[in-house]
Amino acid sequence: MAANNAGDLSTAATRQLVGGAVGAIALGLGVALLRRGFTPQTGRETLAGARTHARQKRSPLRVDEPPQVKAARRLNRAAGLLGTSTLLDSAVEHYRGSFQNKAMYTPLIVSALMLAVSAHGTRDKRPIAHGVRDATYLAAALTGIAGTGFHIYNIAKRPGGFSWQNLFYGSPLGAPGAVALSGLLGYYSERLRDNESDKIPKVFGLPAGRALAALSGVGLLATAGEAGLLHFRGAYHNPFMFAPVTVPPLAGALLGETALSRPRRPRRLTRWWLRLTALLGFAGAGFHAYGVQRNMGGWRNWSQNVLNGPPIPAPPSFTGLALAGLAALGLLEEHPDA
């Protein structure tokens, strides 16, 4: 059947182009923001590099940054980014839920603290774990796990139980997991710092690089699952909505392969695919901002559309996880057996 005539199709195409443009702008922004994180350490002879160099000179204690500290700092950045996403997302979602339960403030507080300690950690080059950071990250991980429990309980008690209706519109099952994940990444970064620099870094007795690759891979798959559920709710009305259910899962699979396979390098495909995933996270926020505009009343009706439209802070969680994956690759680069 001819569901749409040519006219409809052309407007649909125009809309997707506009969406694409907004996405592209967000992508550009993302590139700019992420450049430092992406640029391989070896090739860094930029202004930023010079600055780092200068700072190092002022601080005689720090000579060469050990690879696990480098990785730990990257992980702090990843945890911070993921934390930002969960902070904003839980703020929006729990505001939508009218903070019906006082416990709904917890992920906000914890994510905010995590953001602060992650910023601290990103700048801290000492090869030792930091007590406050450690505690905060641990608290975040526990909050995420408790939150998942709350959300499961909330869904179970609604009419219909674990039905599509409740998975779509009830407390999101996957969201607290992102808080847990960012806490875990941060906690991991602290463990990394505790390693001695000339040994193969290990965390909980596992080779750190591989374990981290596996962790971020699983995180990417889980987050893609959440995006898949919500985009299914949106009936994949725009073809770009397939991006988060194709790109990140592949990145997750590549990381899984990295975690399990024999040591080898370079892992160009994995690295580039993770970078693509990281950019996609930013692009997603752009798409979602456009989605809000496209709802009735657009941004003028923000008090409804920010809540009922696509969640703007959610997609950058892909970026956070991709950065964690890149940190794992970095570790493996220094220690192929890690």
């Binding site: 009218s98 009735m296 009343g297 009706n301 008090s303 409804q304």
Partner: peptide, 17 residues
């Protein structure tokens, strides 16, 4: 209620408007 409709649909929930 147009263009702004409502967000909170569950029992005992109200939007700020």
């Amino acid at each position: 209620a147009s263009p702004r409709g409502y967000v909170r649909m569950n029992f005992n929930r109200r939007d700020s408007w």
